[in-house]
Amino acid sequence: MGELLDAVLRCLIVLGAFLTLPLLVGQMEHKAMAHMQSRVGPMAAGGFHGWAQLVADGIKFVQKESITPAAADRRVFELAPAVALVPYLVAMLAIPLGPFFGQTNLIGQDLDLGLFFVLAAMSVGVLGTLMGGLGSGNKYSYIGGMRVAAQLMSYELPMVLAAASVAMAAGTLSLVGIAQEWEPWWLLTQLPGLVVFFVAGLAELQRPPFDAPLADAELVMGPLTEYGGMRFAMFLLAEYAGIVVLAALTTVLFLGGWAGPWSDHLGWVWSLLKIVAVSFLVIWARVAYPRLREDQVNALAWKVLVPVALAQVTLTTVLVVA
């Protein structure tokens, strides 16, 4: 009984984090992106510098009508947002936050194969956007769906290779184990892997500069064109939840997770700070760089990231064996 209660409590906490952290990242994006563009961002909602903007957005989305186009494949169209969103919730279950005031790790469930589980869950999320693109009955969505398929498949390989390099260095696939085995000089030896993982993760999330599938000057909104109301909000939540998952994974794998002073009590604070810092990098990349063309996206994946990732794996092998 105690175990069941424990499991339910952990799931509820993960669900709470899943619903609030993406909103915080979203608000940070509003404000940081605004100031980087010499403007102020939302100021009205909530009174103090528009802190409640995303709450207002949520209410707006809830009260909107969810329209299904006549030419759309009804079932596929309506299921796509759920298929895009749920894998990120599932992935969050296995990512550790660090020691919480002397207790064991804050984590949904520490899996032996944690890293593989998270990567597998993220790869299922791809199907959601693909279903949206195919099922919308819209030419722009169709082309967007094709771009999604090509891009997300191309970038899964460097991402898995970079993650595999860290797993090799740590000797375990468990995320808690990897964070515990982390050494500060890994920042240097795993640096190519870090860059590859981050860039490939950005492309997996279809964040600018890799948002060719959603290019709004070319494809209206790509696979998301026909979506409105709550379904669109689900896709948006999936994007920001993906940013949180990517930041959390980068932190745990490459930045040492909860490493820092007083980590057995404040480890979770260090984790959260690093997640916020990586999310800021994601937002910074969006503002600073123009969109990559579709052929540039694929060329980057296959001609740059895969060789660098393979080189990183080789380097790690040499270091581990030596």
Binding site: M36, S38, R39, V287, A288, Y289
Partner: peptide
């Protein structure tokens, strides 16, 4: 790439003219 980051960082740290 670095110049892009530098420009946006400078805008971030200066008061906006809105």
């Amino acid at each position: 790439l670095l110049q892009g980051l530098a420009v946006t960082w400078r805008n971030l740290t200066h008061r906006s003219v809105t």
